[in-house]
Design a protein around this nucleic acid. Structure first.
Lengths: 262, 262
DNA sequence: GAAACGAGGATTGTCTACAAGATGGTGCAT
DNA sequence: ATGCACCATCTTGTAGACAATCCTCGTTTC
């Protein structure tokens, strides 16, 4: 009875903007501390300040942006204690996820997970932030397969915040082992070994948390408008099959200088 | 004379309204399904529609109100499956809380908890909704004592949603044992017996969930669609199929939101 | 020369106005 | 009489206007 499927464009512009900003934050295109003025966001996404403001409020409630009264919103800068707290709870939640999932995955789900791991592997040599995003998506997929909307929401949120923390503190060259651990987790889940899956997951997250300890890097973004250009475009493209006419928005796809394939 | 009474007045009106609505919802002053027009809220709280709207959005993100596009907001009516899901995750989260708290409570914290239990006991003969609110606050206090802001947020949110569920489905005369269980939990925590505390908490929540989730027919606002579902079904079957089995089951989630990501 | 003060600009907080969609009633046609 | 279509009205969605607050920077004074 419901045909409404791909109307994320007109259906809820706030969600679209949130998602775009989330991606930008996780991929560190928007670094922690970057100011997010409502005017600029509204102009970039083609909406008024009202919508931009609501999107920022949403992200603030998720902990991805910091909203101080009369001082605007900026990308959150999690402290070390907050990061530790996040990872602690994340471990518990994801233990719960794998214990629910062990032995209960369908063939299709396992295939989807392996496919995603392949994507992670393929992106191993690209920008670090991309790897973080893909790894986060893996954990999100696991949570979604539990079929528990609440759990999905919490895991998603906490994973994103952990991802933000990683882009802040983590040192590079550490995603290779993480991918292997993803494989191990999936293997244990497929075999139905809940204990092993929980143990590996715990170890996996502990590893990830441990390598987020030092070197607080801080640089200021060059231009907010330029940074957001690809994400404003991807917001429409990611919808999937329906690539309707996006006349006005003019996808000027000059990606960042860093990604030069081949 | 206005400065001594705290900063809730000008500090953040949205939060104030949210809190007021939360209380009203938990105490069933606003019953599930009640429409919440922005105009009325704004007028009642002395703010414009913008503020009321933001408060509603906040509550919607917490799952306490249901927000349908172009159709306004209303107090959420959790389905049976959602309620089951909520209580499942709540058990896990609160197990985590008590396992963190066992043996680590200060004298002051224990005293505060006992004082709150006394308040629960005093309110045992008042309205059911008040008891639910106080019981919820007890669990919230426990979460706060972990010192983990994220955990606090999640436990708070999930407890409120569970409280909403209870006001919907629970039958009266059931808070006495719950208070005793609170005492048992606190005793175990004070002794530092993490296992016992976790076990009692699990049992406690299972009890609460069971008395809430056994009979979904108890609601005073039954969905018309659900009621008519068997009849609509028999109209399609049109022949030998009997309705008798459906009368027993009666748990049929009809149209839910269409977002099932693969 | 440094610190305090104040004007100016910029950004946020809130409200109201206008547009779009939904709901419900009325009238017309069959 | 029933069903359909149109319209009136209400509520929500969104944008911009106006006021309040904060930051910056130049000026003044010790």
């Amino acid at each position: 009875m419901s045909k409404a499927s791909g109307k994320t464009k007109k259906d809820d512009r706030i969600s679209s903007i949130c998602e775009a900003l989330r991606q930008a934050i996780i991929e560190q295109a928007l670094k922690p501390g970057t100011k997010l003025p409502e005017d600029a966001l509204g102009e970039r996404f083609g909406v008024g300040r009202t919508i931009a403001r609501q999107a920022l409020a949403q992200l603030a409630s998720e902990g991805l942006v910091d909203h101080k009264r009369n001082k605007g919103a900026e990308v959150a800068t999690p402290s070390w204690e907050e990061a530790r707290d996040l990872f602690d709870l994340r471990m518990s939640l994801e233990r719960l996820v794998v214990s629910r999932l062990a032995g209960n995955l369908t063939k299709e789900q396992i295939a989807a997970l392996r496919q995603h791991i392949a994507k992670e592997d393929a992106a191993r040599n690209t920008r670090e932030a991309i790897s973080v995003r893909l790894a986060t998506e893996f954990h999100t997929m696991l949570a979604e397969m539990t079929g528990s909307p609440v759990l999905v929401r919490y895991v998603q949120e906490i994973c994103r915040r952990c991802g933000l923390t990683l882009t802040l503190y983590a040192r590079p060259h550490s995603s290779d082992c993480a991918i292997n651990e993803h494989i191990e987790i999936l293997d244990a889940l497929e075999k139905g070994d809940a204990d092993a899956a929980a143990r590996i997951m715990h170890h996996h997250l502990e590893e990830v948390a441990n390598r987020a300890l030092i070197s607080p890097v801080n640089t200021h973004a060059p231009s907010l408008m330029d940074i957001l250009a690809p994400y404003a475009a991807v917001e429409e493209a990611e919808s999937g099959a329906k690539v309707s006419q996006m006349a006005g928005k003019a996808v000027n796809g000059h990606r960042r200088r860093k990604s030069s394939p081949a």
